[in-house]
Design a protein around this nucleic acid. Structure first.
Length: 693
DNA sequence: CGCACGAGAATTTTT
DNA sequence: TTCTCGTGCG
């Protein structure tokens, strides 16, 4: 994110130039952590003479990686391309593709996405005659994911019976993956670590490549990711991790906040640098954020101090229901637009995806451009998945799910019975599914034979073309996909889907252009690794969950649905640990805002189509807000300090040193001020103990 | 085989 | 409220 000054401050510079031993940078929100990483990489290349190929930089999202790369390009030019940048998953996938022969996978293996993973488990659960009402496929999926993130799995052990018949389900699921030649998200890391542990020479090879390792958002790494890093870097290695314990919001997904809290114990000779100067938010917004997070116990403890001295606006608004809330929010947005704030600088944040709907309705009504980030990602839209299924099957002819999907959509007279016959034939004879389909076609007669031939002809035609964009066109023509949409969808929906398809063809064409030879596997894994949060809002208002907002910043932020049970979410309210995570989530939301921050809550809200009554969130009680108007009134009614002491005055205290005044309250000799000290953060002070600079 | 209809579940958050 | 899944009919 762009910053006011391009110069590095003292701490930032120290972090950039330190290379002696493992380095932990505790970087609060808006303190320029991306800047530090980018400058550090540039420093390594330009000043230390490190080869870009020897630098690994791990980010939390693909988008963050792209942004980082483009910023790095501004500093070091084309040499930036050499640096390994990406998420843990994308980096590991790259390694896995190179080292496929060290695993049981076949070349050109595919990546199974979350949706397909769930449907695979549905099939498994059904085949094992497990009552899916009692033990849902989702539960199994969740447990499989957790298990795959343990060392037991990495080391090849069998799981225990965590829930009913878990080992059986696990085994059947693994067999499915193995036949279909697929890996899931968790396997990407686990299998790479397994390769490293079983093959010393491979580990040595990669240790030699990744001589300098940089990790962003370290507070959200899990144990297995930590293990991966430690294997590559060793205890003394050139590893630099950047993170903020107050922004750890993925505990539910297995993130270990202890990775950052115990960094000094995991590595030797650790150097720690804290960044606490915030370049993003106005002082009162920071003050609010600091007062809220101070309610947490499990933290290292720090306060952010403002660099910007212009006060912002903070508002809390009570609304009747979610419609009222959306009307209020959009009214405010229109006001902001009038003030010249661009669409892209406005965000509506919420706890759950379901909350976006009311806002979307209202935004549509007023014709304000917006983009919902998160929710359903581009690549999981039905029409896109349908087309990708053909590509996936042709790339990996063992992929059962893609066979099912492509054979059925659009409908072409191939139903479950025939599909099952194909699968049985393939498993029975050890052939791939496409050959099996052709085989079945040749022994069938009449309609069935013709239908199957129609289907396999499309797959054969695709082989004639090298470019992925061309292959997609073959699918579209061959299956009359456009007609299929027009036939079964409303005009409007059909058009939207056709637009999406055009967009897919575009993406494929761009991919075709940028690679010497189009690698279908590579393209397809990009599509599964690219998640909804990687899409950018462009010139429109952003709507997203608080989780998706991590790492972003906006001039104006609406934090909506601040109600007990919704935020904090009901399930976390009786658990101190989870409640603190909710509070951190709120903290993340607040610190996204540069100058306008609006909280809203409603009295009633529709849940599952039932109206429910709501109480304001406890977070609203915990945080403190500096009201500008009130402050001015106070200042005019006091006598001795008020004239000199007001917001943004720089002051000095005998014990705490230099600080900045956030607000002033009280009268006469009881004048009190909230002051940010550089050394120790926010304090409430009697005005008479302060000296004015 | 494919569609239409009805019952029942679903909401945390995502690489 | 909205989506998904299963069932039964043409």
């Amino acid at each position: 994110m762009p910053q006011t000054a391009d110069r590095l401050n003292k701490e930032q510079r120290a972090a950039v130039e330190y290379t002696g031993s493992p380095l932990l940078v505790i970087a609060g929100a808006g303190t320029g952590k991306t800047k530090v990483i980018v400058h550090k990489i540039a420093y390594l290349i330009d000043n230390i003479g490190v080869n870009p190929d020897n630098i690994l930089s791990v980010t939390f999202t693909n988008k963050a990686a792209w942004e980082m790369k483009s910023r790095l390009k501004n500093l070091v030019g084309e040499r930036a391309d050499g640096v390994w940048m990406g998420t843990f998953h994308s980096i590991c996938l790259r390694i896995l593709r190179r080292e496929t022969h060290k695993t049981v996978l076949k070349r050109g293996f595919g990546v199974i996405d979350q949706d397909d993973r769930l449907s695979a488990l549905r099939t498994v659960v059904k085949e094992l005659n497990i009552d899916s009402k009692k033990y849902s496929p989702k539960q199994y999926m969740w447990l499989i994911s957790s298990f795959k993130n343990t060392m037991e799995y990495v080391e090849g052990e069998e799981p225990e019976e965590f829930i009913y018949r878990f080992p059986e389900v696990f085994k059947a699921y693994q067999q499915y993956l193995s036949f279909a030649n697929l890996v899931d998200f968790d396997d990407m890391l686990a299998l790479v670590i397994r390769i490293f542990q079983e093959n010393d020479e491979v580990l040595t090879f990669y240790k030699n490549i990744f001589r300098y390792i940089m990790v962003d958002e370290y507070q959200d790494t899990n144990y297995i990711q930590f293990f991966f890093l430690k294997l590559l870097s060793g205890e003394y290695g050139n590893i630099c991790v950047v993170g903020d314990d107050d922004q750890s919001i993925y505990g539910w997904r297995g993130a270990e906040i202890r990775n950052i809290l115990d960094f000094e114990k995991h590595f030797f000779d650790v150097k720690i640098i804290k960044l606490t100067e915030n370049y993003r938010s106005s002082p009162n917004i920071l003050f609010t954020a600091n007062t809220l997070i101070a309610n947490n116990n499990y933290r290292k403890g720090k306060n952010l101090s403002p660099v910007i001295d212009k006060m912002g606006n903070i508002m809390v608004k009570e609304c009747h229901d979610e419609q009222d809330e959306s009307i209020f929010v959009i009214n405010e947005i229109e006001r902001m637009l009038d003030q010249g704030i661009p669409f892209s600088e406005i965000a509506i944040l919420y706890r759950t995806n379901a909350q976006s709907r009311a806002f979307e309705v209202e935004l549509n009504k007023r014709g304000i451009p917006y983009k919902v980030i998160g929710g359903i990602s581009f690549y999981s839209r039905r029409e896109i998945k349908d087309l990708l299924a053909y590509l996936k099957l042709s790339d990996n002819p063992y992929d059962i799910d893609s066979l099912k999907r492509s054979a059925k959509n659009p409908p072409k007279g191939i139903g479950n019975v025939i599909i099952q016959r194909i699968i049985d034939y393939a498993t029975g004879n050890g052939t791939d599914l496409i050959s099996a389909a052709k085989e079945i076609a040749s022994v069938s007669k009449g309609k069935t034979a013709a239908n199957l031939k129609f289907y396999t002809d499309i797959l054969d035609d695709m082989q004639q073309y090298e470019n992925i964009a061309d292959k997609i066109k073959v699918i579209l023509n061959g299956s009359s996909y456009g007609n299929y949409l027009k036939q079964f969808e409303e005009q409007n929906d059909a058009n939207k889907r056709i637009n999406n398809i055009d967009e897919l063809i575009n993406a494929a064409a761009i991919f075709d252009e940028s690679y010497e030879e189009s690698d279908l596997s590579e393209f397809l894994s990009t599509t599964t690794l690219t998640t909804s949060t990687d899409e950018s809002a462009g010139d429109s208002v952003s709507l997203m969950t608080l989780h998706s907002a991590k790492g972003l910043e906006f001039d104006s932020v609406f934090l909506t649905g601040l109600e007990e049970g919704l935020f904090p979410l009901f399930r976390s309210m009786d658990n101190e640990w989870e409640l603190e995570e909710e509070r951190r989530l709120c903290y993340v939301g607040i610190t996204r805002a540069k100058s306008n921050l609006v909280f809203t809550y409603t009295n009633t809200r529709m849940v599952y189509g039932k109206r429910q009554f709501c109480r304001p969130s406890m977070f609203l009680d915990e945080l403190e807000i500096n009201d500008n108007d009130e402050q001015e009134a106070d200042i005019s009614s006091t006598e001795s300090y008020e004239k000199k002491l007001k917001a943004n005055t720089r002051v000095f205290h005998s014990k705490y040193g230099e600080g900045i005044v956030l607000n002033v309250k009280g009268v006469g000799d009881k004048v009190k001020a909230d002051v940010f000290f550089q050394s120790s953060g926010l304090k409430k002070m009697l005005a008479e103990s302060l000296e004015i600079f």
